[in-house]
Design a protein around this nucleic acid. Structure first.
Lengths: 73, 73
DNA sequence: TGATACAACGGGTTATGAGTCACATGGATG
DNA sequence: CATCCATGTGACTCATAACCCGTTGTATCA
């Protein structure tokens, strides 16, 4: 599976845990709602700076975000 | 500290552990030698796909790469 | 001194990410 | 049914990531 899809799935999983909409998360991360859709569906190849905003919007740090089976070999 | 600087420092640290040059690492990751310098010095805002190539060149997965104090709140 | 290896910088081109819009779909609800 | 609400898509512009060149500076050698 593509790394962007993995990241999208991870974001969606964490967002659902917080019970918020794509739009709500997008607003906190200061990205467009439709852009967030693209990220979650793995269609966007995000830069580290944008990913940082999303991870922070999820109230996590990079270590926790990537500490998941999906990111392990 | 900026996220790109953190990533650059982390890459440099891991590269030195492996005792290889920027150019050697760049070749494995299939990026340009001068581009790798930019990444290590925190001047580049890399995309996830390129970061994946570098992390793989360091023989790590994302979970291990980000499992470091520097990426924790 | 000259040669070699490594790292950093400046500058230019090309590819693509970031940001935005209108519109479509599907589910729930009155 | 009509109207929200959440999500997804295609197309577009503009900024910048990705890529490549030559050069410079430094250290370490023979």
């Amino acid at each position: 599976m593509d790394i962007n899809q993995k990241i999208g799935e991870r974001i969606r999983e964490l967002r659902k845990q917080k019970n918020i909409s794509q739009e709500a998360l997008a607003n906190i991360a200061e990205v467009d709602r439709t852009y967030m859709t693209g990220v979650e569906t793995g269609k966007r190849n995000v830069t580290v700076k944008v990913l940082e905003r999303i991870v922070e919007a999820l109230e996590l740090d990079f270590a926790s975000f990537f500490n998941d089976k999906i990111f392990m070999k």
